[in-house]
Amino acid sequence: MLRISQELVDAIVRHARQDHPDEACGVIAGPSGSDSPQRFIPMLNAARSPNFYEFDSMDLLKLYRDMDDRDEEPVVIYHSHTHTEAYPSRTDIAYASEPNAHYVLVSTRETGAEDGPFEFRSFTIVDGVVTEEDVEILA
């Protein structure tokens, strides 16, 4: 199960709407071993694409250095789908390489950059196996 604050959910959805129709992506870091997402880190989608996202390689190195320095890990890795459902694609699964992370997908296909309904779902992806999990939103 993913336990995440309303504030962080809002931040992810806001980022997804801002970058619509391109995919938005980022990380929420938390203390190592805590399973608690705390520090919101929106990342640039180096692919700037409606169909693909990728952290820039230098941004990626800096991100992991920063997390190492703070004894953090990527608790949540999020990205948006802008015209399909919030479910990991084959490409998402092929790339997934943090077995301990919660992979959050947001879909903005219904309302795009505007307010309104959105999908927000969380998954673990381990050795190519996708498992959806419950999301508990904390006040």
Partner: peptide, 11 residues
């Protein structure tokens, strides 16, 4: 040397 998996995907 640092090794990091790419963080990427797509729909």
């Amino acid at each position: 040397i640092d090794v990091l998996p790419a963080v990427a995907g797509g729909q």
